[in-house]
Design a protein around this nucleic acid. Structure first.
Lengths: 203, 203
DNA sequence: ATAGTGACTATATTACAATATGGTCACTAT
DNA sequence: ATAGTGACCATATTGTAATATAGTCACTAT
């Protein structure tokens, strides 16, 4: 069954030229930004014509998606590592929130160009962002489940509602589009919001 | 543009010409938007020269502040009325959140031009927005106090932290700058977030 | 002193032509 | 069939000259 929402990938997904394009894009997007990089720039960099690039990617955005996806995956990895050895579900939640915000903020300050891609990706609802969002929700769900099983968290509220509500609370701090407006809060907010969320989860 | 933290009001605060300016601004800003309205337009409307307007307002933004302030006060009034006859603190909180979001969303859809002023005001931290923010916090504080006194809410958490955390949870839905990105959530979010907040307040 | 303004400046905005860019396609070479 | 491209088009972006605007000030009239 073909899902219409997901754009049909163009060209072979395993191909050295495809990799070269992605590699060049990673460098150019990070150095000059997504908007300022032209498809011709990438073509020149890898020594092929612009038309050939379109044998592998249907649009420039599709190239951006790959870069964005890689960037967001790096954040997810940081989150996973940040939670790794937390003793309780509560502590895992605190660390998850803290690390997520830290990783996003760091991206903002240290690789601003890539951050901007993520921001426009979020604004235009790119596939890569939807995937990221679902991954975050999955992490929240797992923490809640663990906490409920361990008797740390209440079990009355429907678990989907809990997950969605917590996601909404966190969103302003790792949705790149919203984070911009909350940079002055990235220290305090995750702490006091984690506490609020954990109070709401108390049995 | 230079922005003084507390701008010194210019000219007499009670003056028929001042009122005329505000009246004209309310009409023009609402009809054509803040940016598209020129100070000369307002001058022509009230039949005086542009220079005379600057006897009453130091900058165009100062005129915008008054309009913005009136708009936000109307929202505050709607919130107050929405909460009026709620039987419990919990219910007051739910209604407060719901009404705040409804009033803001309505402004967005029905008086888009004024909404845009509020949005840029929020982005540039105009005085009128800081006042609004403090009023909201005051309302939250009062609800928490009432709820604690009535035994509805827990009393351990420092009340300032509680207020700040709840404010942060609500912010994305009535800060005009953030609301734009959350318009698809204005139905669901206040409900499930109210529930989360109330769970966090449980004794 | 009070009410009010024309004329001015420095900056912001617009209008629009020139250029650049995303994307396509028929085509060649192997 | 596979690998690759030059030439092309419609739209987006940019450079820039002309215009408009926010804000000031010395001034007049009362």
């Amino acid at each position: 069954m073909i899902k219409k929402l997901q754009p049909i990938p163009r060209g072979p997904s395993e191909h050295s030229v495809r990799d070269q394009i992605v590699e060049a894009a990673a460098e150019y997007f990070s150095r000059y930004g997504y908007e300022k990089t032209t498809v011709s720039d990438l073509a020149k960099e890898i020594g092929f014509s612009k038309a050939y690039i379109y044998k592998f990617f249907a649009t420039k955005q599709a190239i951006g998606e790959v870069i964005c996806s890689n960037t967001l995956n790096a954040i997810l990895k940081a989150i996973d590592e940040g939670m790794a050895d937390a003793p309780t579900a509560s502590e895992r939640f605190r660390r998850m929130f803290k690390t997520a915000v830290e990783a996003s903020t760091q991206l903002f300050f240290e690789d601003r160009k890539l951050y901007d891609i993520a921001a426009s990706a979020a604004g235009e609802q790119w596939q890569s962002c939807i995937v990221y969002q679902n991954q975050i929700k999955k992490i929240i769900l797992q923490i809640i489940r663990d906490g409920r099983e361990a008797g740390e968290f209440e079990r009355k509220t429907p678990i989907d509602e809990t997950v969605n509500a917590i996601y909404l609370v966190m969103q302003p701090y790792f949705n790149p589009l919203l984070l911009q407006h909350n940079l002055d809060l990235t220290e305090q907010a995750p702490i006091i919001l984690s506490s609020l969320v954990l109070r709401s989860l108390a049995p």
